[in-house]
Design a protein around this nucleic acid. Structure first.
Length: 123
DNA sequence: GCCCTGACTCTCA
DNA sequence: CTGAGAGCCAGGG
């Protein structure tokens, strides 16, 4: 099925796959992705993996890195930095409300469906 | 191997 | 709500 996936770090691949499951208009936290990817306690690794997504696109599917924010419900880039503004813009395009750097997790956090997870995450 | 650096998180003040 | 401190762990030098 997927051909050149092996050259990437398996942990990164798991993280990317998990991030691809975040539905449009929703966000997830780094810790949440780490847990779902089977890497509990490694939120920082998630940040690293997202920074390492091949720009050309991986697996011919986009990895919506911008849907991942920190546990405080905020964008993790310095306020008004280039990446910050890019991320904020992309989120707003999906009707996600961002005030300053903050997003209301109670409204926009992804709540994965258990049966969907079991079906897709076959490690 | 040791040391330092994070797109992190939790706890406590 | 904000900030400091400690714990965290993969990567890179």
């Amino acid at each position: 099925m997927v051909t050149e996936e092996k050259s990437y770090k398996p942990q990164y691949v798991r993280i990317w796959r998990t991030v691809q499951m975040i539905p449009l208009g929703k966000v997830a936290t780094y810790g949440q992705i780490a847990d779902l990817a089977g890497l509990p306690g490694r939120a920082r690794l998630v940040g690293k993996a997202l920074g390492a997504v091949p720009k050309t696109g991986w697996d011919k599917q986009p990895v919506p890195w911008y849907r991942v924010i920190n546990a405080q419900g905020k964008i993790s880039f310095p306020l008004n930095s280039e990446y910050f503004l890019t991320q904020k813009g992309l989120l707003q395009e999906e009707q996600i409300i961002v005030i300053g750097a903050k997003i209301k997790l109670s409204n926009f956090q992804w709540q994965p469906d258990l049966s969907e997870l079991l079906f897709k995450l076959t490690y």
